[in-house]
Amino acid sequence: MKKGTITAFVQNQNTVLTRLMALLAKHQFQIESLWVGCTEVEDVSKVTVIVKEETGHKFRQLVKQVEKQIEVLFVMEGTDLQVVEEQFELIKAHNSAKVLVHLKE
């Protein structure tokens, strides 16, 4: 199954993550990775979600819905973010290795 990546730069408000996650749930997307963090700009956070993508149409609808949210400043999507995805894979690999070592001990 293909994967879709959405990166949203959002205003820091405590409801914004709830809103985005509710959207994913409503559109029945399964989250593979979720990364939220501060940016260099005060009061702006970056949310990156990797989802299992069923159809291109469904994914495009999700992107439009994310763009529509009031706190969302702008959105990047899709394959141009391959780099981010690769980084996620690395982090995952790194962490699972650590966990495995820990369990063996």
Partner: peptide, 14 residues
């Protein structure tokens, strides 16, 4: 209330 009305409001605030 903010949590439960998030999917059914254009926007909400606390």
């Amino acid at each position: 209330v903010v949590g439960m009305t998030t999917p059914i409001t254009k926007h909400n605030y606390q």
